[in-house]
Amino acid sequence: MIKTDLHEDGILILTLTENRLDAANTPQFRELVIEQLKNGLSRIVLNMHTVQFVDSSGLGGLVSILKRIGPMGDLVLVGLAPNVLKTFTLTRMDRVFSIAPDVDAALKQLQD
């Protein structure tokens, strides 16, 4: 479901391998990410390039991860498909989450 990659500078790159994030897989996804947060890493790039659809449960899961990371950490989303971006715009989540076009841009954003 998730591939984990620890980048230099202690930035964690998580790559989702699902094609949708919905009521069925969001609880497990959330648990996996929060497990990673317990290691003390709080700067995270979440690569969602395989995800074609995010439903309301998926969105709730992402927000709960964002809240868990808290103001001391940082989360950047990468690879949002047009359909997913539409959901983000409709719910204004594009103004809540940091979104970058690719992993390099996200890393640069987090390193600055």
């Binding site: 715009t89 409709l90 719910t91 204004r92 809540v96």
Partner: peptide, 13 residues
Amino acid sequence: GEGGFPIGLFEQS
């Protein structure tokens, strides 16, 4: 409409 914040996610919405 251009969208808006859902209800119950963020207090400051």
